[in-house]
Simulated assay, not measured.
Amino acid sequence: MLILLGFTIFLVVFTVRRNEQREVQDVTIAFSDESAPFVTRETVNKLLIVSSKNGASNAKENLALSTLEKRITAHPIIKSADVYVTMSGKIGVSIEQRKPIARINGNPPFYMDSSGELMPLSKNFSAHVPLVSGTSKKDTLQVYKLATYIRNDAFLLKHIIGITRDKKGEYILEARKQEYKIVLGAIKDLNKRFSNYKAFYQKALKDKSLNNYKLISLKYDGQVVCEKK
């Protein structure tokens, strides 16, 4: 029994040791959202390099997975990463990218993500989000509140393509395929103001009168004030 027990322990240790020394043969990279490739697989592969030659030539025991994850998530467009090694010696990487909700027209331009943080533009992919103009860093919280509201509303997400803050501090919206501007005013009472706009839009669409206006104001409580061309 003692010999059998000793032999079993030897096999377990030998197997584990051999598995750790097995060299990594391949890398599999998966994105949580394949429809928005802000970061390429080539970029992630470069971040995975753990030697001067090739990160896939290292023994499994030498791979510090947490270090690789930190290296990947240090990229300004990547939100999180899960790096693991399979028993067959393959590296697996699951990538979650940050999600833009607005593009700020600055110098240089940049995105605002779903957490309200700023992120750089990507050379690989452009997000279809509202373009924001006339704002500064002190307006970040207001822009985030408005952009998030638009992002979470199916109608507004397809309808609003631009946000401008004028010299009076009022926010003006640009609608897709419409010639008029929407004066939102201050960032408050968004539920009421956009509900009023949706009601106006549906009625004007039915009446075929949308092209008659150059300005739609939502900043007055309980009403929509229109200015014709």
Results as ranks from 00 to 15, higher is better:
181 K>R: 11
144 Y>H: 05
169 G>E: 05
170 E>D: 12
162 G>D: 03
154 A>H: 07
176 R>P: 03
140 T>K: 10
153 D>S: 14
167 K>Y: 09
171 Y>A: 04
177 K>F: 15
146 L>V: 11
179 E>Q: 12
152 N>P: 00
148 T>H: 08
138 K>Y: 09
183 V>E: 06
171 Y>G: 03
176 R>W: 14
177 K>Y: 14
155 F>E: 01
157 L>W: 10
139 D>E: 11
139 D>T: 15
182 I>F: 02
137 K>G: 01
153 D>M: 09
145 K>A: 11
153 D>E: 10
180 Y>W: 11
178 Q>K: 14
138 K>C: 04
165 R>L: 12
159 H>L: 09
141 L>C: 01
176 R>I: 15
139 D>N: 14
159 H>Y: 13
146 L>I: 12
163 I>Y: 09
158 K>G: 02
145 K>W: 09
152 N>F: 14
143 V>W: 04
167 K>I: 15
148 T>I: 12
165 R>W: 05
150 I>P: 01
160 I>R: 00
172 I>P: 00
172 I>Y: 04
156 L>S: 04
145 K>M: 11
149 Y>N: 04
168 K>I: 11
146 L>H: 07
140 T>M: 09
166 D>M: 08
148 T>F: 07
151 R>C: 05
180 Y>N: 02
151 R>F: 13
178 Q>L: 14
161 I>T: 13
135 T>I: 15
148 T>V: 08
170 E>F: 15
138 K>L: 11
165 R>E: 00
148 T>A: 09
178 Q>H: 13
170 E>S: 12
163 I>V: 15
134 G>N: 03
148 T>G: 02
142 Q>V: 04
151 R>G: 03
140 T>Y: 05
169 G>M: 10
134 G>F: 10
158 K>W: 06
144 Y>V: 03
169 G>R: 11
138 K>P: 00
156 L>M: 11
169 G>K: 13
176 R>Q: 14
158 K>H: 08
137 K>S: 06
179 E>I: 15
183 V>F: 11
165 R>G: 00
133 S>N: 06
146 L>D: 02
155 F>R: 02
179 E>V: 15
180 Y>T: 05
151 R>I: 06
183 V>D: 00
138 K>F: 12
167 K>R: 10
134 G>I: 14
161 I>W: 08
143 V>S: 01
174 E>F: 01
154 A>W: 03
155 F>V: 05
141 L>Y: 09
182 I>L: 06
148 T>W: 05
145 K>C: 06
141 L>D: 05
141 L>R: 10
139 D>Q: 12
141 L>A: 10
145 K>I: 14
159 H>S: 04
165 R>T: 07
172 I>G: 00
146 L>A: 05
139 D>W: 14
167 K>H: 08
151 R>L: 06
170 E>N: 15
135 T>C: 07
170 E>C: 10
148 T>Q: 08
171 Y>I: 09
173 L>D: 02
174 E>C: 01
151 R>W: 09
